[in-house]
Design a protein around this nucleic acid. Sequence first.
DNA 1: GCATTATTTCCATAATTATGGAAATATAGA
DNA 2: TCTATATTTCCATAATTATGGAAATAATGC
Lengths: 113, 113
Amino acid sequence: MDIKSAVTQLSSIAQEARLEIFRLLVQAGVEGLPAGSIGEKLNIPPSTLSFHLKELSHAGLIDSRQVSRFIYYTANYAAMNGLLAYLTENCCAGVNECCPDITICNQEKGNEP
Amino acid sequence: MDIKSAVTQLSSIAQEARLEIFRLLVQAGVEGLPAGSIGEKLNIPPSTLSFHLKELSHAGLIDSRQVSRFIYYTANYAAMNGLLAYLTENCCAGVNECCPDITICNQEKGNEP
DNA sequence: GCATTATTTCCATAATTATGGAAATATAGA
DNA sequence: TCTATATTTCCATAATTATGGAAATAATGC
């Protein structure tokens, strides 16, 4: 992880609408949600939603896949992990127990029904 | 944690200079660093540094204390924890093991010499 | 091909944020 | 009080980012 990617990822969630979208997707799990549902749940007009989804997507914090006419968006848990790890890297100079290892939202253990 | 605070905190580190400052302080541990040292290490002019430190401070991600003529800045590990927890809250709907508990950088276990 | 639905692009406008020089303020020691 | 050092405030300029309507594009079923 380099600092520019980290800034891009942080910027992408440093905005209320996008943070709501991201958290919604984090909570939605590996199946994700189609764009339309996201806009409906969060009451965001299509053009604005599209703009924000693109920002999150470019940052790499969410992925998308097409299913018929719907585009499903999902949180990229690995990217989230990477970002959190970067923030806490070498915490307290790694000298002691101040900062335990982190392992958060490992997508390998997803909850696909 | 409410979404506005989270956005404020994320915005505060969604900027290269500030992310460098924050990470430097996270790594510096509980003693922290005086403003001057930060500016020197990261090559940031005083006025710019002051602006960025204020942003981080207002967001609550760093604290400061005066020691003689120096102002020491420190990472607020509790705030960092809170932010990371907010991002991963109810991950995958909390249905399974997708997202283990997180405990990162607990300042109670600091490494004061 | 046509109608329908889903999503994105384009665009102008508005709002926010970053930069750093110069001056001001604060602290401490002689 | 005078001087030196540390940090912040002020300010103008520049750059980036957000918003949403309207139009365009894409995908599906009939």
